[in-house]
């Protein structure tokens, strides 16, 4: 693959799928997300089975408040939107704007993560509610923690891509990389919508 083919004069309409490597990455990543769906489905199933097994410890109703979680949901939903803007600018080949919107995405993601850490800290030190409190505690921290781990990984990934390509701009080699990172980000967002509903809303109502 030569430099010319990767840096064409005009970017094709779908730079993420213009090369065979790009097409493979695109499809492979969708499949990966399929596997991730089963992973989270299994975690949700486990959580649903154990959500009332509080072992006389604190349960969902006592613990959860919706204010912070609402803020977190807004942060993450907005970050999904900003990553859509980033991809829009990628397709228009305006690299600077793409980086800008990705940067905003990262900031929103960091905000989300900060809130989550604060929430966990509060449960553990304020309420004495931990992974070892009860089966409910185990299921809660595992499900929400897996999601948090995904957010962390996604942030590191997007930051690495932004730093690596800051100087050289967009080409057909890195366009698929940006694209699948944003796909991953959307996926994390969708999972959060389910966590918000199943864990928090169903927990307090």
């Amino acid at each position: 693959m030569s430099d010319q083919t990767l840096n064409p004069e005009t970017m094709p309409e779908q730079p993420e799928r213009a090369t065979l490597e790009g097409k493979n990455k695109f499809l492979g990543f969708w499949f990966f997300l399929g596997g991730e769906t089963v992973l989270f489905a299994s975690l949700f199933g486990t959580y649903l089975a154990l959500r009332n097994s509080t072992n006389d410890g604190p349960g969902a109703e006592e613990l959860f408040g919706l204010e912070l979680v609402f803020v977190m949901t807004m942060l993450l939903l907005t970050s999904s939107l900003t990553s859509v803007y980033a991809m829009y600018h990628m397709k228009n080949n305006s690299f600077g704007k793409m980086q800008l919107w990705l940067g905003i995405t990262v900031l929103l993601g960091l905000g989300f993560l900060g809130c989550e850490l604060y929430e966990f800290y509060h449960y553990i030190h304020g309420e004495g509610f931990t992974l070892r409190s009860s089966a409910f505690g185990s299921a809660f921290y595992t499900l929400v923690g897996f999601h948090g781990g995904h957010v962390t990984f996604g942030l590191l990934w997007i930051i690495a891509l932004m730093v690596r390509n800051a100087k050289r701009g967009l080409n057909l080699y890195n366009a698929p990389k940006f694209y699948i990172a944003s796909l991953y980000w959307h996926f994390i967002d969708v999972v959060w919508v389910f966590i918000f509903t199943v864990v928090y809303l169903m927990g307090v109502i």
Binding site: N55, R132, A135, G137, S138, A139, Y141
Partner: peptide
């Protein structure tokens, strides 16, 4: 792994596990 190594209670009936 969490049950064995980190003390969670997914499968531990005495913690409400199943």
């Amino acid at each position: 792994m969490f049950d064995r190594l980190f003390g969670s209670g997914f499968f531990n009936a005495s913690m409400g596990g199943n």
